[in-house]
Computed example of a mutant assay.
Amino acid sequence: MPRIDAHQHFWEYSETRDTWITPEMSVIRNNFMPEHLQPILAQHHIDGCIAVQSDQTDEHTHWLLSLATANTYIKGVVGWTDLQSPHLEQQLELYRQYPLLKGFRHILQGETNRALMLEPDFTKGIAALGKAGYVYDILIYPDQLPYTAQLAGLFPAQVFVLDHIAKPAIKTGDWQQWAVDIQALAAHEHVYCKVSGMVTEADWHQWQPQDIYPCLDVVTAAFGTNRLLYGSDWPVCLLAANYSRMLQLVTNYYSRFSAAEQEAIFGENAIRVYRL
């Protein structure tokens, strides 16, 4: 079974555009391109990846698609488009010519309206995605988990993928409510979860695996190994761990699981969910 990194990013760093990359994140104030990632994946016997949007423009989505076309190890793209646009269905029709486009994401974690996903224009957009056969990646903070569960309930046929286990407060250890809300979301069997991004929610410089394993306990019990997808979140992970350490964290945790379960988490589930 091919091994897939289900979540990573590419960008050509722009100080004016990438304002989310703050001064203390200087390690990722650089260009991160396919030629930088390919040898890292090869070193770790990862056969392919999914490139996920980091800028909320259709131009960025087209740029990611051009990278995927030129680099065969990029097996799919999760892009951005305006889900609240009255012209969304026409836009999605235009995107049908790109078979490498597998889904879409909106940066909900940055929205002032924490329940934006439940607004009529947004849910109309989710309905259009489902009609067109696209996955929706969910990028949120823990306070938005209850709204996400409501959204999942509205669209039982839509495939949702939760990014970064919804970013629990690993650094402070204040994630008890997160655990309750994760279980409620996971009750919707059409929702999947990426075991990604966790190191950046811990203490960047002093985290240890035992800080993160309790949260992996929660999502593994809630979703089961058939609904978990490994993702590195490279290069964002570099704030707290290089690729090797991020992969080792997840690999070591699941080493006690069966070979079939490990194959599912590290490739099979991503291939099935994103139709790679």
Rank of each mutant, 00 (worst) to 15 (best):
Y147K: 07
W207Q: 03
G173V: 01
A152H: 14
A202N: 09
S196Y: 08
G224K: 11
K167D: 02
S232N: 03
V180H: 15
N252V: 06
F223S: 04
Y230D: 12
S232E: 08
L249E: 00
M198T: 11
V195W: 08
L238H: 10
D163W: 13
V159N: 14
P235M: 03
E189C: 04
L151K: 10
V218M: 04
P146F: 02
W178Y: 10
Q158N: 08
T200Q: 00
Q248H: 15
V199T: 13
E201M: 11
C237Y: 01
D163A: 14
A202S: 11
H164P: 04
A166T: 00
M246W: 12
V161N: 05
H205N: 15
G153H: 00
P146I: 04
A222G: 13
E201R: 05
D203V: 02
A202P: 01
A241P: 05
V218K: 05
Y243L: 06
I182R: 01
T225V: 15
W204L: 10
F160H: 06
Q210Y: 11
V159G: 08
D211Q: 10
L151D: 05
Q177I: 10
A241I: 02
V199E: 09
V191E: 04
W207G: 00
Q176Y: 04
Y192H: 12
G153Q: 03
G224M: 11
A179L: 06
R227Q: 02
A169Y: 15
Y192S: 08
T172C: 05
D203S: 00
Y254I: 05
Q150D: 11
N242R: 01
L185F: 13
G153N: 06
T148G: 11
Q158V: 00
L249T: 03
Q248T: 14
Q248F: 08
Y243V: 01
C193I: 07
A152R: 14
D181Q: 14
C237S: 10
E201K: 04
Q177T: 09
A221L: 04
A149C: 11
L249W: 07
C215P: 07
L239F: 01
G224V: 04
R227K: 00
Y253V: 04
A202C: 10
V199H: 03
G173L: 02
H164V: 07
L239R: 01
